[in-house]
C-alpha cells in the first residue's frame, strides 16, 4: 500500500514546490515594478495625460450641453480643440510604451546582472521565471489601467453629477479589460525581444521601432500595398474600388493598434453600428439608433479574440525561445 501512495505524494510535492517558485517570482516582480522609478515616471506621465484629457473633455461636453446621450462615455472619447487627444487616444498611444517599458529588459537584464543563473539554480522550473514575469506584469497593468479608468470615471462623476447607466459602466469595464489585453500584447512582445536580444538597449529599440511602425507608418504601408494590388483611377470600376478598400481594411487589421482602436470606438461610442465600409443599400431601412451593449460586444468580439490570440502567440514564442536558450552569459 505504502509503495503506491508514496510516489503520488512525491508528485504532489513537486507541483506544490513548482507553484511556490512561481508565486515567489510573481511577488518579487510585482514589488519590483511598483517600487521602480522607471515605472513611476511612466505612470505619472499617463496619469497627467489622462487627467488633462478629462479636463478638456469636461469643458467640451459642458459647452455642448448635456442633452446628448451617453454623456459618461463621452468623458473618455471627446477631445477638445486645445489638446486634440481624448482619454482613449492617450491610452492607445502611451499604453504600448508602458508595456514595452515593463518587459524590455526582463530576461536580458537578468542575464547582464548574473541573476539569471542564480535564480534558475534554485529549485524552480525554468518556466516559473518567465510565467511569473508575465503574470506579474499583467497584474500590475491591470492595476494601473483599472485604477486610471475608475479614477477618471470617479472624477467625471464629481464634475458632472450625472451617474453612469449600467450599460455605460459595462462598456467602460469591457473597454478597460480590452486595454489590459492590448497592453499585455506589448508586454509579451517586449518579453520576447528581451529573450531574443542580448543587449537591453537593442530590445528596447526593437520594441519602440515596432510601436512606431504600427502607430505611425502602418497606415501608409497598408494604403500603398492596397493601391499597388488594386490600382485606382477616376474611371475605376466599383469592384476595383471595393477590392481596394477591403484589402486595405484587412491588411490594416494585422496591426494590433488598428484592432484596438476599432474595438475602442465601437465600445465607447454606441452609435457606431458597423466597422469598415458600408454600402448604401445596406443602410436602406436601417434605424439610426445606438447599438445595445450586447450588439456592440458582438461587433468587436473578433477583435478581442484576435488581440488575446496575438498576445498569447507572442508569449508562446517568448516561452519557447526561453526554454531553448542557453543560460550562460
Amino acid at each position: 500500500m505504502a509503495r503506491t501512495v508514496l510516489p503520488k505524494i512525491e508528485a504532489l510535492e513537486n507541483v506544490v514546490q513548482a507553484n511556490r517558485g512561481l508565486t515567489a517570482v510573481i511577488k518579487k516582480e510585482i514589488s519590483d515594478h511598483l517600487s521602480g522609478r522607471r515605472f513611476l515616471i511612466l505612470v505619472i506621465l499617463v496619469v497627467v495625460a489622462c487627467l488633462a484629457s478629462l479636463y478638456i473633455a469636461a469643458s467640451a461636453i459642458r459647452s455642448a450641453g448635456q442633452n446628448a446621450d451617453f454623456v459618461f462615455l463621452k468623458l473618455f472619447t471627446v477631445a477638445g480643440s486645445t489638446l486634440p487627444f481624448s482619454f482613449t487616444a492617450f491610452v492607445s498611444f502611451l499604453g504600448p510604451l508602458l508595456g514595452l517599458m515593463m518587459g524590455f529588459d526582463a530576461i536580458n537584464g537578468e542575464r547582464d546582472r548574473g541573476t539569471l543563473s542564480h535564480v534558475l539554480s534554485q529549485p524552480i522550473y525554468r518556466d516559473a521565471l518567465i510565467n511569473g514575469k508575465f503574470i506579474a506584469g499583467v497584474i500590475v497593468l491591470a492595476l494601473v489601467v483599472f485604477g486610471l479608468g475608475l479614477l477618471t470615471g470617479g472624477l467625471g462623476l464629481l464634475v458632472f453629477g450625472v451617474p453612469p447607466t449600467v450599460e455605460e459602466l459595462l462598456r467602460i469595464l469591457v473597454y478597460l479589460v480590452l486595454s489590459v489585453v492590448y497592453i499585455s500584447f506589448w508586454l509579451a512582445l517586449s518579453l520576447l525581444f528581451s529573450i531574443l536580444f542580448r543587449q537591453t538597449t537593442t530590445s528596447a529599440l526593437a520594441g519602440i521601432a515596432l510601436w512606431l511602425f504600427f502607430t505611425l507608418f502602418a497606415v501608409f504601408f497598408v494604403g500603398m500595398i492596397a493601391n499597388a494590388i488594386f490600382p485606382l483611377s477616376e474611371s475605376s470600376p466599383a469592384q476595383q474600388v471595393l477590392a481596394n478598400a477591403r484589402l486595405e481594411m484587412w491588411l490594416g487589421r494585422i496591426s494590433p493598434n488598428a484592432l484596438y482602436d476599432e474595438a475602442t470606438v465601437t465600445l465607447l461610442n454606441p452609435s457606431v453600428r458597423a466597422l469598415g465600409f458600408v454600402m448604401l443599400d445596406q443602410l436602406y431601412g436601417a434605424i439610426d439608433a445606438p447599438l445595445s451593449f450586447g450588439q456592440s460586444l458582438l461587433l468587436i468580439w473578433p477583435h478581442l479574440v484576435s488581440l488575446i490570440a496575438a498576445t498569447l502567440i507572442c508569449f508562446a514564442a517568448a516561452y519557447f525561445a526561453f526554454m531553448r536558450q542557453e543560460i550562460r552569459a
Binding site: A24, G36, E110, R113, T115, S117, H118, S121, Q122, P123
Partner: peptide, 27 residues
C-alpha cells in the same frame, strides 16, 4: 547550491531582501 563566478544579486534590493527571495524560491 550554486555560486557562480560573478554571483548575481538584485542591485536595488538589500542583501536581506535578496536572501529572503532565495528562501522564497526554495519554499
Amino acid at each position: 547550491g550554486y555560486l557562480p563566478d560573478n554571483v548575481g544579486f538584485y542591485q536595488d534590493m538589500t542583501g536581506l531582501e535578496n536572501l529572503y527571495y532565495t528562501a522564497d524560491l526554495n519554499g
